[in-house]
Design a binder for these strands. Structure first.
Lengths: 138, 138
DNA sequence: AATTAATGATACTAAAATAGTATTATTAAA
DNA sequence: TTTAATAATACTATTTTAGTATCATTAATT
């Protein structure tokens, strides 16, 4: 079950690396190439991901020599859900299918109710996880 | 987020229909064509799905004239998770990616722990849902 | 015995999603 | 002016999804 997509996964790795360097060495600016070297991620692809995070207001980007990406929001305030939303939308496991047509049973569907409740819980739990908590393992 | 795949969705619809007829009219055997007519699902596709359920031991199939599918397990004992497992494996949202390579951080990854706990909870909740509870909406 | 109406098994296929790559433009420092 | 970075956007290969198609088998009916 693909709950966390690859984009999110790669972005998390990049951010955790950046947070680590930022907290331990007070490093501020990171080029895509550096992160790629350290984390072994595909370069052009990661660049696109970091661009997305910049558009989302989690990072700032600076062009030109000495340019790169840095945190706009402090990494302790970046939730896993922020990153997930950037790449896969809000957590939503309540999908019903049936070929585009609306489910004729939406109102009384017990599955839907259950999934909605589970969804809230997932949301709450994932909001507790931040880039820093991922780094520190707690 | 694709939590319930189309196969599962279609299979659930078929089984709920069958359970309804079974409980209200004491109907026992259902052809694919009948279910397709009533539920508007793609025929050849549904046939494959019901075959899978038969292999899984939820249904029995009978070939030939007057053949069709009928419940092996009573519909009140068929859990949503049984159906999901047939088509999408066990509920597992704890996937880590990184291009095939094992995540170097598996042990202390807080995300992994959190997802494992959530996963257990989802499993427990979905096991409460059966074909009959879906039919009755409770 | 032949016909009909059902499933069984398996191969095939079109479309969409995923996971990237490639190219050209822009920008800022040295 | 050169170099080293990101920005934007188009392109592409692979995989997954959502089916369809074909032929075989089986059992009841005639």
């Amino acid at each position: 079950m693909k709950f966390i997509v690859r984009d999110t996964d790669y972005a998390v790795r990049a951010l955790v690396y950046m947070a680590k360097q930022s907290l331990s060495k007070n490093k501020k600016v990171f080029t895509v190439d550096e992160v790629v070297r350290e984390e072994g991620l595909p370069g052009r692809f990661l660049r696109k991901l970091l661009q997305t995070l910049a558009k989302r207001g989690l990072l700032v980007s600076n062009k030109g020599k000495k340019g790169g990406f840095s945190f706009l929001k402090p990494p302790a305030s970046i939730k896993l859900t922020d990153i997930m939303e950037a790449f896969q939308g809000r957590v939503d496991i309540t999908n019903c299918l049936l070929k585009g047509r609306p489910c004729p049973n939406k109102k009384k569907c017990i599955l839907r109710k259950t999934l909605k409740n589970i969804n809230k819980l997932i949301q709450r739990e994932l909001e507790k996880i931040t880039v820093v908590s991922l780094l520190e393992g707690r």
